[in-house]
């Protein structure tokens, strides 16, 4: 049965998008000033949520990679592609906002730091997935290769997260979720958690819209191919 983008889901996505904008306006103008980093710390409210969104895309991609590995259902592969597209965007945004934060705090746009390097690797893996998806013609090979890359992407996520713990890094250590409780003050932490939660819901909405579009596009291509074969 053809899945459709319902008006109510569309409305829900736009409401979520605007709730997130509202939260970001609040954090930009009304969230408390941070004494050590000054105004620059506000980048945290966009940098951390997009990083979590990239992680969510990677985990959903891994989930569908495992499912796709077990059964040859085409919609699983299409869902994987949607996750890789959204994941790449979120990872690039994580790197870009991280660089914007790094310039005034570290004095450089880029440093070959473990956290930054593993995040760059995550972006490269997402890109590799998309490249394989488009370049491999044989359906069964595409399904298996993409599933392997999908699982590799998910394996990379804990490495990105733990990199500041495992290696010497100039990136600040984990401060939101760590042993012994968060080191961020509640006035900063709660708006940040709200931004992360809403961003994750928005990522889910974007994933679903992307999936529905890719599935419809695939159906149209199949129909066109069938009518071409029938015309011969």
């Amino acid at each position: 049965m053809e899945k459709k983008l319902s008006n109510s889901f569309l409305m829900f996505s736009f409401v979520i998008l605007h709730v997130l904008f509202g939260l970001w306006i609040y954090t930009l103008f009304y969230a408390p000033y941070e004494a050590n980093m000054g105004e620059v710390y506000r980048v945290l409210y966009v940098h951390v949520p997009v990083a979590f969104a990239a992680f969510l895309s990677a985990f959903v991609l891994a989930f569908y990679s495992i499912k796709s590995f077990r059964s040859a259902n085409k919609s699983f592969v299409i869902y994987q592609k949607a996750c890789a597209d959204v994941g790449l965007l979120m990872t690039v945004l994580t790197l870009a906002t991280g660089s914007i934060w790094a310039k005034p705090t570290w004095g450089t746009w880029w440093e070959w730091d473990p956290r930054l390097t593993t995040t760059l690797l995550l972006a490269i893996l997402f890109l590799a997935f998309i490249m394989f998806y488009h370049s491999v013609e044989e359906w069964q090979v595409k399904r298996k290769v993409c599933s392997v890359i999908g699982i590799l992407i998910a394996i990379n996520v804990p490495i990105v997260y733990q990199s500041v713990k495992w290696w010497r890094s100039i990136h600040q250590p984990q401060s939101l979720m760590r042993e012994g409780g968060s080191s961020i003050s509640p006035e900063i932490r709660y708006p940040l958690l709200a931004c992360i939660a809403v961003m994750l819901i928005l990522t889910y909405c974007t994933l679903k819209v992307r999936y529905l579009y890719l599935e419809l596009k695939d159906q149209n291509e199949m129909k066109a191919l069938q009518s071409l074969k029938g015309g011969r």
Partner: peptide, 13 residues
């Protein structure tokens, strides 16, 4: 820098 980061993320999303 903060405005740059916010603008980039809001526009992209």
């Amino acid at each position: 820098y903060v405005y740059m980061a916010y603008l980039l993320v809001i526009l992209s999303c």
